[in-house]
Design a protein around this nucleic acid. Structure first.
Length: 429
RNA sequence: GGGCCAGUGGUGUAGCGGUUAACAUGUCACUCUGUCACAGUGAAGAUCGAGAGUUCGAUUCUCUUCUGGCCCGCCA
């Protein structure tokens, strides 16, 4: 008999179910097993008097053990767990668990050590159900617009942007690096005339960042497309994409997220508000009495970034805010600049955290080369500059942090939001 | 990389220059006419992160080290 999931059970219809024991109550005449699978929980009730064989088998098990149960679901109004119970005719204890080393109260670091046990809870599996939907809806949105999905190398021969924040590795008798971003390859695809592309895949950063939003390996969702007029075209695509995905998440998981994480999923409205960075500082100082030294104002410092959540809600009733007009010194050399030298790029802040950097790219070889040289990037980017010698259309794009998106959606930290977190001190499991 | 803080049974905490190292929860056993956060009784379980020092005596004080947390920086 094929195993079905608990939410597929039908009253009085014989079935096989299987899962993990949540609670095992052994009373004088009855054994009650709260069995859990990904879709729900059901009480399995064993009568010790009439089912001695099943009793013997089930008492080999412990909470956390995996079992298979054949039997029938019956209605029983006395059962507080949904008014239903499962009357077994056969039980197999598949795998017995030791006493579990973590519970919901354990610290996240301890929980990561035993992540496979930790992830068994509804609350934690929801993270990945939500992320699956989120990413697939973003993918779906782009596919509807005829984007190509590409897969770029993660082992690369030249440090991609600055050279300081990449992991070095041995590649036979040569040095290689782990890709810190698919940036150059995305643009290569533009040079190839691919027109519109996206990629979702791992990104590696050799930064010793200790915060609850940084990790050394994460999943990026990168988009690049051609024939744009300006960075606003890029922003427009991104806001549509996010709205589309968040709408789907709210419909399917909005209630469950509210229940388990206490977070409301707010579907944004387009267009998202846009502010120039100097105006953001001006408003923060004016409205909240904050003070920032001029020296930091070319970039968005953490304190300001957090407060942008309030600012954006207050000024625009929006959780999202696009910020433009960063100082050229703070931005990548490949961002196009206007005639005043202002980078034509933006960051997207959601709930007080940066989730995206996007830009119109500089596609004119001479200017691009000059901007690279200004940043002291000569040989490092030779391979990249080559693309632009043979014609590249005007284009732009952005990179979105999938793990940050998940984290912010649920109001948790990056360690909790990732299947397995990787940090400067965390290489296992 | 800089600043501050923490590490005590499986888990989460209390405590303190001399204690039988306390509590909750979990685990195990027995008891309990269907439980449902079951209940009751009992048991096991901690060389108090590691190393060195001060002291008659250190889990407690000092130093070193490891690990973690928070804040800053770096960014997605």
């Amino acid at each position: 008999m094929e195993r079905i999931r608990i939410n597929e059970l039908v009253i009085d219809k014989p079935a096989k179910i299987a899962g993990c024991i949540d609670i095992l109550r052994n009373t004088k005449y009855m054994v009650f097993v709260i069995l859990k699978d990904l879709t729900g929980v059901i009480q399995v009730s064993i009568d010790k008097g009439t089912q001695p064989t099943l009793t013997e088998e089930i008492l080999k098990a412990t909470p956390g053990s995996f079992i298979s149960v054949w039997g029938v679901e019956k209605e029983n109004p006395h059962v507080k767990l949904g008014g239903k119970e499962f009357i077994p005719s056969k039980i197999v204890v598949e795998s017995v668990a030791n006493e579990l080393p973590v519970d919901a109260n354990s610290f996240i670091d301890q929980r990561i050590d035993y992540r496979w046990v930790d992830l068994r809870t509804d609350k934690n599996t929801l993270i990945f159900e939500v992320q699956t939907l989120l990413v697939n809806k973003m993918r779906e949105y782009l596919l509807q617009k005829d984007f190509l999905e590409i897969h770029t190398p993660k082992i690369i021969g030249a440090a991609s942007e600055s050279g300081s924040e990449v992991f070095e590795l041995k590649y036979f008798d040569k040095k290689a690096y782990l890709a810190q971003s698919p940036q150059f390859y995305k643009q290569m695809a533009m040079a190839a005339g691919f027109d519109r592309i996206f990629e979702t895949g791992p990104v590696f950063r050799a930064e010793k960042s200790y915060s609850n939003k940084h990790t050394t390996e994460f999943t990026g969702f990168d988009v690049e497309f051609s024939y744009i007029d300006n960075m606003y075209d890029v922003m427009h695509l991104e806001e549509e994409l996010l709205t589309y995905a968040l709408k789907a998440v709210k419909e399917k998981y909005g209630n469950k997220i509210k229940e388990l994480y206490g977070k409301e999923v707010v579907v944004p409205t387009c267009p998202f508000p846009v502010m120039k960075l100097p105006d953001v500082y001006k408003e923060l100082e004016k409205r909240y009495g904050m003070k920032f030294p001029d020296a930091v104002k070319g970039d968005l410092v953490t304190e300001a970034e957090r407060k942008v959540e309030d600012l954006s809600k207050e000024m625009f009733n929006s959780e999202f805010l696009f910020i433009t007009d960063y100082d050229a010194s703070q931005r990548a050399f490949y961002h196009m600049r206007d005639k005043n030298g202002v980078p034509q790029g933006y960051d997207l802040i959601w709930r007080g955290c940066e989730i995206t950097t996007g830009a119109q790219r500089e596609h004119r070889y001479e200017i691009l080369k000059k901007q690279a040289e200004e940043k002291g990037l000569g040989k490092d980017v030779e391979f990249y500059l080559e693309f632009f010698k043979y014609g590249v259309p005007p284009h732009g794009g952005f990179g979105l942090g999938v793990d940050r998106l998940t984290m912010l959606l649920l109001g948790i930290t990056i360690k909790e939001a990732m299947f397995i977190f990787r940090g400067p001190q965390r290489l296992n499991p």
